[in-house]
């Protein structure tokens, strides 16, 4: 249990924790892109098990408000999930009675401007690969169509030869405005 009596005891915010170092060795842009496209396809097709299996145990899935957002432990975000809460979110939607996503949205997204940004040390002291990319996703449901766009920062890690997702921060272009229900995996 973390006992916090003062803001100084806060852990650093996850997006800027540590420093960005050189791109770690052993990563090919094409492999990275293929992974990002796969993650996007699983999300678009509401393949909850497949999508959840991409994540590492120390996962962070974060959708802030107000630009890059403030510290997610002391201010509210649209999503700030650790691995356990990702699991809860997936269990809820798989009941078929998560009405915000039952029936599920029809979705397709485009990812572009994929850029290897550098490396960032994780809790185990290894260096994860940090990537930036832009996206647009068209969502269709009875409510109407919604066009979502923004920039995603990913951190990837190889575990037993497989690429896994450790971190995903999604900064929506319109996150300073009121946004409609975001029931799908962004």
């Amino acid at each position: 249990m973390v006992t916090v009596n003062a803001l100084t005891e806060l852990p650093p915010r996850p997006d800027t924790a540590g420093e960005l170092v050189d791109i770690p060795h052993g990563w090919e842009v094409r492999d990275v892109e293929q992974f990002l496209y796969k993650e996007a396809r699983l999300a678009d097709e509401n393949d909850y098990d497949g999508w959840e299996a991409l994540w590492t145990d120390d996962a962070i899935y974060w959708v802030p408000v107000d630009g890059e957002g403030d510290h997610p432990r002391t201010t509210v975000s649209i999503i700030f999930d650790n691995r356990s809460r990702i699991s809860t979110r997936m269990k809820q939607v798989k009941t078929g009675k998560r009405y915000a996503q039952a029936p599920p949205s029809n979705l397709r997204r485009i990812i572009g401007n994929v850029e290897l940004l550098g490396g960032r040390a994780n809790a185990a002291g290894e260096i994860d690969l940090e990537i930036g990319a832009n996206f647009m996703v068209l969502e269709s449901r009875d409510r109407g169509n919604t066009l979502w766009g923004g920039r995603t920062t990913y951190r990837l890690r190889r575990i037993d030869g497989q690429i896994r997702l450790a971190y995903k921060k999604v900064v929506l272009v319109d996150n300073e405005q009121a946004v409609p229900t975001l029931g799908f995996l962004i």
């Binding site: 002391t74 509210v76 999503i79 229900t181």
Partner: peptide, 20 residues
């Protein structure tokens, strides 16, 4: 803060369903 993020707002596991 953590419970609120989980529950309310556009992706909240309670309020997104109320809003639907």
């Amino acid at each position: 803060v953590s419970q609120s993020i989980g529950s309310v707002g556009p992706a909240g596991m309670l309020l997104a369903d109320d809003t639907e």
